[in-house]
Amino acid sequence: MTQQPFRIGVDLGGTKIEAIAMDASGETLARRRAPTPAHDYVAILQTITALVRDLESEIGGRGSVGLGTPGVISPRTGLVKNSNTTGLNGKPLDKDLAALLGRPVRIENDANCFALSEAVDGAGAGGRVVFGVILGTGVGGGLVVEGKALQGVNKVAGEWGHTPLPWMTPDEFPGRLCYCGHYGCVETFLSGPALAYDYGVRSGQRLCGEEIAVRAAGGEAAAIDCLDVYRDRLSRALAAIINLIDPDVIVLGGGVSNIDRIYDGLFDLVERQAFSDAIDTKIVRNRHGDASGVRGAAWLWGGPGAAARGD
């Protein structure tokens, strides 16, 4: 049992809700998981509350609570918007959780939580400006400046997945239709399903990224070509981030980021595409993996030493 200050982070995913308690140095004190009752808003609130209570009962104390979730709280309405866990949309998630837990709850987009985790004590630690990239079922991004997630006035900062793929070739233009209603979004080229689609066009088979990587390692031409094209497209998209934000570090996350081949020569390609004679931006794989989201949620109440600084 401990009475030391601790933070609780909750990662609200489409299939599971994970919660951890961390001490001031980032060490995990306890962890819990539960299935997400995705179509039942009240049950989601109850599940999160139960996870927090269980952690506090085990540790013996009361912690701050941060929540990472798909979507954001709209600054105009105070309600959740843009969540693919659709039962959250239109709900005052932060206020309802605060009422149940009896304390303020900080809520942030899950991509921003990933970026914050990697900026505080992950692969981007020490960088003043860190851009976190999610290459998974969708493509997302988060921007952290001096240890704080930058939301933007509309709370869509970092949503590079819904910008056009830069410098499309004639064969790529105008791109496929994205669910957002536009053609040629980065997400339609760089998400996991997009990689599977591109491989399917070349081979007639639909495989996941991990399987494509195995085939490429075995010398299959279609898989090698597919990943080489993916890397080229990724380099263009990352070069555009550098042109616009010029971060110290870009951290790659999500399932596709686990494919080793996409890193081969990636920095050189990005440097060639960026509007600069050379770049010093580090482009690195994440350190905390699947735990980054929940850790970042905990760090919404400040990084190491925050209590002493009064964050």
Rank of each mutant, 00 (worst) to 15 (best):
L195F: 10
G78I: 04
A216H: 05
R31G: 10
S117H: 10
H162R: 11
I8G: 04
P104V: 11
P75H: 07
L97M: 08
C226F: 01
F6L: 06
A43C: 09
A115Q: 09
D23I: 02
R7L: 12
V145G: 03
E210S: 15
E118D: 03
V144S: 06
T28W: 08
F189N: 03
R206K: 13
A240Y: 06
D54T: 14
Y230P: 00
T28G: 10
L97K: 02
F275D: 14
G310K: 02
F275G: 10
L135H: 04
F189V: 07
A237E: 03
F267H: 15
R62C: 14
A217D: 14
D198L: 10
V284W: 01
A21E: 01
G141F: 02
V139T: 10
A298P: 03
M168F: 07
T15Q: 12
C185N: 06
A194H: 00
V42T: 10
V153K: 15
G136I: 07
G9H: 03
D23V: 02
I262Y: 03
A223H: 04
M22T: 12
S64D: 13
L51Q: 11
Y263M: 11
D260Q: 15
Q151T: 15
F275C: 15
L252H: 03
E220C: 08
N89S: 10
D232M: 12
G136Q: 06
N286R: 09
G192W: 08
C180S: 08
R272W: 11
A239P: 05
L93I: 11
P174W: 04
M1I: 13
A213F: 08
G126S: 07
N82D: 15
A297T: 06
W160R: 09
D94K: 15
G142V: 08
V214L: 11
L135E: 02
E146P: 07
A50N: 13
A308C: 08
R236H: 12
R233M: 10
G303Q: 08
A123Y: 04
D110T: 01
D11R: 09
V133F: 15
I224T: 13
Y197N: 11
E27V: 14
G60N: 03
G204P: 00
E187M: 04
